[in-house]
Design a protein around this nucleic acid. Structure first.
Lengths: 206, 206
DNA sequence: CGTGGTTTTGAGCCCGTTCAAGTATCGTGG
DNA sequence: CCACGATACTTGAACGGGCTCAAAACCACG
C-alpha cells in the first residue's frame, strides 16, 4: 500500500484533538489513513455499554460508513492526523493505479485476521491473559528496541478495559499482579517496561 | 459477486462430510466459496480452548492461509460443497474481470463489520443476550417465511457455546429460559421457532 | 433394546464485577 | 511555582453470573 500511503502524504491532512469523534460528513462511506497518532474504533449498546473493536496506528486504515444505525464510531485517542478518501475519489484512484485495489484487499484480510484474534481473546481468555496479550499486541506496534526502554500507553485504563471486555478495576489489578511478579514495570501509570518477555508470552496464553 | 459465484458453479466442487477439516493443500492461501452447507471457522489456544470466529453459509466466502502457526481452521458443520480459488488462479481471474476485485473488497468489508459485531457481543453482552443475538443472527440467514415455521440449527449446543464464548450448560439454560417465557419454541433440540420476534430483539440487547 | 453422544438440570464454587473509599496525577488559575 | 479541583488509578470487601462437576434424561444409531 506504499503508493496510496505516499499519495496520502501529499494530500491535505485532517487534524483531530484527543476525544474528538472522526465523522464522515456527507459521503456514504470513506476510507481513512492514519498519518500520526492513534485512533480507537468502538461500538456501543443502547444502554451505554461500549466495546472498542480496534485501534489504528500510523500507516493503518479504517473505514467509516455514515449509517448511524449502531455502526462503528472512530475517535482520536491522541492528537491525530488522518487523510480521507471518499468513496468517489477512491474509485477514481483505483482506476488510475491498478495495484491499489489488490493492496487494499490484502490490508483488509489482515484486519480480518486481527479481528479474529480479538474474538478468540474475548471469548476464551481469562482477565490476566487478556491484559498480557494486550501489552504484547501494543508492544508489537513499535520497534523492539523501544520496548526495552519502556513504551507509552496513549489510552486510559478504562479504554484498555473497553478493548478487553473487562472493567477498569480488573485491568488495574492484573497490571499490578504482573508488576508484582517482575514481568513488567509500571511508572506513572502510562509508561510500561517489559522485564521478561518470555514470561509475558506465557501469561498471554497464546 | 454474482460473476464469481456463477463462475464457481461451473467449476468442479470439493465435497466434505460433517466434521471434516477443510485444508488448503499446497497453495499459500486460497479463497473458498460455499456452494451448499455450512462451514465453521475457529481458532484455538494451546490448551484446547476453542473459539468459533464465524460461520459461512451458501454464497459466502472465506480465506484459508496455510501457515499452521495458530491461524484459522475451517471445518464442515454439515455436508458441504465448496469451490476453491488458489491465489494464482484468483490473480488470473481478477485480470480478466476487473469488477471482481472491487466486489471482493466489498465482501471483506462486510465480513469485517460482522466480526466487529461479534466483538461487541463477546465483550459486552450477557449470556442470555448472546444466545438471543445468535438466534436472530442465524434466523436472518434464511427467508423470513421459513422463520415462522421453525428453523433447523446445524450446530450442537457445544458449537453454539464456542461461538458465543460460553459453556454448553449456559447455552442450554438460556434457551430453556427463552422457551419458558414463550419467546421461542424448541423441538427435538435442533428445531427452533420464533414465537415473539420483538421480545427476542429486546432480549438480544442490540 | 442396549450403547454412545448430546442435552438438560441441579448444586456449589470462583472469577470478575460492583460498590466504596482512598491515592496519585494532571491541568488550571492564582 | 504552588494550591486546588477534577480526573484517573489503585485497593479492599462483598456479591453474583457463569463455570465446574455430577447425574439424569433424551435421542440416534446399531
Amino acid at each position: 500500500v506504499h503508493d496510496i500511503v505516499s499519495l496520502a502524504r501529499t494530500r491535505r491532512l485532517i487534524r483531530f484533538d484527543r476525544r474528538q469523534v472522526i465523522r464522515n460528513e456527507g459521503a456514504p462511506s470513506s476510507l481513512f489513513n492514519v498519518i500520526s497518532g492513534v485512533v480507537k474504533l468502538y461500538r456501543s449498546l443502547s444502554d451505554g455499554r461500549t466495546q472498542i473493536v480496534g485501534f489504528r496506528f500510523p500507516g493503518e486504515f479504517f473505514v467509516i460508513t455514515d449509517s448511524d444505525g449502531h455502526s462503528t464510531t472512530a475517535e482520536a485517542l491522541t492528537f491525530v492526523e488522518v487523510c480521507k478518501f471518499s468513496h468517489s475519489r477512491l474509485k477514481r484512484l483505483t482506476l488510475q493505479f491498478s495495484q491499489t485495489q489488490a493492496k487494499l484487499l490484502d490490508v483488509s484480510y489482515r484486519q480480518l485476521a486481527t479481528a479474529e484474534e480479538q474474538i478468540l481473546l474475548l471469548g476464551r481468555k481469562t482477565a490476566s491473559e487478556k491484559v498480557a496479550s494486550f501489552l504484547l499486541f501494543y508492544g508489537q506496534k513499535f520497534d523492539p528496541e523501544r520496548t526495552e526502554w519502556g513504551l507509552q500507553l496513549p489510552m486510559t485504563r478504562a479504554e484498555i478495559a473497553d478493548f478487553l471486555g473487562l472493567t477498569t478495576e480488573t485491568v488495574s489489578r492484573a497490571l499490578t499482579a504482573l508488576a508484582r511478579e517482575k514481568i513488567i514495570a509500571v511508572s506513572l501509570s502510562h509508561t510500561i517496561r517489559f522485564l521478561n518477555v518470555d514470561l509475558l508470552r506465557r501469561a498471554a496464553g497464546s
